[in-house]
Design a binder for these strands. Structure first.
Length: 396
RNA sequence: GCUGGGGUGACAGAGUGGCUAAUGUGACCGCCUGCAGAGCGGUUUCCCGAGGGUUCGAAUCCCUCCCCCAGCUCCA
């Protein structure tokens, strides 16, 4: 980022505004709920500096040549470290990442120590004044400061990617504890999600083997993308591909077919579906309670849809209730199923008219002409389906 | 190398000691239909990386091996 800012002669903070806005737009498009507070690190410089001072006072941080380090061995003795990732200090090779220069290593009391505040080199583009001179915060610090500020010293759930299991989250936890003095655990549940691969490979900028949300949204409606993510488990490494999206699209279609069909039925006096409604509530909740097992939850919903498909003669009110239940649970998974397709199409009433004419043709057994209408409509991505309740159409 | 995750039917993907191992997709057959679509029924499906062990019983627990993926400290 520092490099890009120099090239474009922009403030680093200017540089990120555009991408952040784009991110909001895409999250909205995908029906993702946005956090109520979206703090920025650069807006919390004072808090970060104060946090470092507290940690120094509490004896967990020290200055060395203008840089402040966190004293990991001392913290480990008092509270255990790293806890997450189950690694021991001995298994870590000093400077294994190859990013720590020799003289930096020599500043540290222990190679495990990490920086809280880094002394800025004269040409460093982002720097702030501090009691220890011009510098910038270490990368674990902002998370500790902002989470405790907005969520409290202890909060329930902290999410993140598996890549943060070590070192970022253990360091963040250590900071939270070092700056608060006496809480047991700052976070009750750490939830780490696996990274997805694309076409069997890790995504990488240099390979360019990734899809952007924007380009996927050109081809697929948001519900299809959400269907994909609901069909995989957050903790399992899963593969994303156009094939997998196509499968998600088919699942979505299956649900829509069920809802559309059930809606068209007049119902009878059977009530066999009532029991399944009761069961789906239990099954869905059990699956979600089991570490958010969305693939299992999804399979239960598909099963439920199958039961609805077989329940043509159930009482109308039960059919309505079942459809509502299905929509509710898909909504929980972020998949809205509003049948907005028809209203999207201009001239829907003319399609209805064509189908009326086609119906007359079929009555007169003039199938060649009737099929011509159907074929021409399908060429325009309109699928015609004949049912005992009459013909109906939908967008492909 | 170290640490963690994983290898399940054609494919995707649940299941972590015990009914016929979910569910979806694909393929094939049948029902329905003027035909098609959607839907329903059936088949593919006595299978769980390999070998050994524990157990009345193992995809699930233990041991050995093979393979795949991810992470491994000042980039946030």
């Amino acid at each position: 980022m520092a490099k890009a800012a120099r090239e474009k002669k922009l403030e680093p903070m200017e540089l990120v505004t555009g991408p952040i806005r784009k991110w909001y737009r895409e999250m909205d498009a995908l029906n993702m709920k946005i956090h109520n507070v979206n703090p920025r690190a650069t807006g919390h410089m004072m808090e970060m500096i104060e946090a470092i001072q507290v940690m120094i006072e509490n004896g967990y941080a020290y200055e060395s040549n203008g840089t402040i380090y966190f004293d990991v061995p001392k913290f480990a003795d008092d509270h255990g470290y790293p806890i997450l990732g189950k690694r021991t200090g001995d298994s870590l090779e000093a400077g294994a990442g190859g990013r720590v220069s020799e003289n930096k290593l020599s500043e540290k009391r222990s190679p495990l120590d990490f920086a809280l505040w880094i002394k800025a080199e004269p040409n460093h583009i982002m720097k702030w004044s501090s009691p220890w001179g011009k510098g910038y915060p270490g990368w674990h610090l902002e998370c500790s400061v902002m989470s405790s500020k907005y969520l409290g010293e202890q909060f329930d759930i902290h999410t993140g990617g598996v890549d943060h299991i070590f070192p970022h989250h253990p360091n963040e936890r250590a900071q939270n504890m070092a700056m608060s003095c006496c809480i047991e655990e700052p976070v009750k549940y750490w939830i780490h999600s696996a990274h997805i691969t694309v076409n069997g490979e890790k995504m990488s900028k240099s390979k360019g083997n990734f899809y952007t949300v924007a380009e996927l949204l050109d081809e697929y409606e948001p519900a299809v993308i959400r269907m994909f993510f609901a069909s995989i488990h957050y903790r399992s490494q899963s593969d994303f591909s156009i094939d997998s999206l196509e499968e998600s699209k088919k699942r979505l279609e299956r649900f829509r077919n069920t809802l559309r069909t059930a809606d068209s039925w007049d119902g009878g006096d059977d009530d066999s579906l009532e029991g399944h409604i009761k069961w789906i509530r239990k099954d869905f909740e059990n699956a979600m309670d089991d570490d958010l097992n969305t693939p299992l939850a999804m399979s239960k919903l598909l099963e439920f849809a199958g039961h609805i498909n077989k329940s043509k003669h159930n009482r109308k009110e039960i059919l309505v209730k079942a459809a509502e239940q299905l929509k509710d649970f898909l909504g929980v998974l972020g998949i809205p199923l509003e049948p907005a397709e028809k209203s999207v199409v201009d001239g829907g009433e003319y399609i209805d008219l064509l189908l009326e004419i086609r119906e007359k043709l079929r009555e007169n057994r003039e199938f060649a002409l009737a099929d011509l209408i159907r074929d021409e409509l399908i060429r325009r991505n309109i699928v015609v389906e004949d049912t005992p309740e009459g013909a109906r159409w939908r967008m492909k």
